[in-house]
């Protein structure tokens, strides 16, 4: 008499997501560090001007979080890529799972991490303000707050999340391709540069990122790109061999 346990795909994916969140806890925590470093770089400001009226001198600094965004984007790429490395991919098969369940769990985890990263990155804006007030020679900080324009702020968070998700999806796809064949390690950067150099490539970039009528459309575009990369990753990983 054999006792076969039956697990549904949903159950297995759920267990895998919980397991992976546990596993990548350290990686998620590293985000905070990345953001802090980004903030430190940001404090000098990207542009400044000064005027003097009578004896009062006004110094205006434009401080932006661009560096934080770039750092977080790099981080998202690394995380997406890290999930696919051999030990992580193979450990799924020390437990219960198929290639499909692993991919789905990975994607869900990346979505969750992106939401976390998006929200915290948005909030780092406020952290920067507080830091400037406390430690900088600043008397007044002007920037829009979530209470001034709640809808816009939510959309901004949305863009942030969608952007991070897209970058992580690209990182994930890259990782899966490299797992399939090491040659992609060199091939992909070459391909990327080729696309950036060509006219049609540049047009594509313009279409996606610039000239969007509304932020909402940008979010939809970013999510669609993420879905495309994730779908390609599922296809490419479905034949991957384990421990071979």
């Amino acid at each position: 008499m054999m006792f076969l346990s039956n697990s549904t795909l949903g159950e297995v994916v759920k267990s895998q997501v919980e397991f992976k969140l546990n596993t990548y806890m350290g990686a998620v925590a590293s985000l905070i560090l990345v953001q802090i470093i980004g903030l430190l770089f940001s404090m000098n400001g990207t542009g400044s001007s000064g005027t003097s009226i009578n004896n009062i001198s006004i110094h205006v600094s434009i401080v932006s979080l661009d560096i934080v965004y770039i750092f977080v984007a790099l981080w998202a790429f690394v995380i997406g890529n890290m999930i696919t490395i051999k030990t992580n991919w193979h450990s799924d098969f020390s437990f219960v799972g198929t290639r499909l369940s692993s991919s789905l769990a990975n994607i869900i985890v990346l979505c969750m991490i992106s939401v976390f990263a998006g929200v915290t990155t948005f909030l780092s804006n406020y952290v920067l303000r507080v830091i400037l007030l406390l430690f900088g020679k600043v008397d007044y900080v002007k920037s829009s707050s979530i209470f001034d324009d709640p809808l816009n702020s939510i959309l901004n968070i949305g863009v942030m999340i969608a952007f991070i998700l897209m970058i992580s999806a690209i990182g994930y796809f890259r990782g899966i391709l490299v797992q399939n064949n090491k040659i992609f390690t060199f091939l992909l950067p070459v391909l990327l540069i080729t696309i950036l150099v060509t006219k049609s490539g540049q047009k594509l970039f313009q279409y996606v990122f610039i000239g969007n009528e509304s932020i909402l459309i940008l979010i939809v575009k970013l999510v669609c790109i993420s879905i495309v990369f994730f779908a390609l990753s599922i296809l490419c990983s479905n034949r991957l061999e384990v421990r071979s």
Partner: peptide, 18 residues
């Protein structure tokens, strides 16, 4: 790629990774 086989079988070897 079969969930039933994965749930009811295990292969222990020195390449087993976590």
């Amino acid at each position: 790629n079969n969930l039933r086989v994965s749930a009811n079988s295990i292969l222990v070897d020195d390449q087993m990774s976590f």
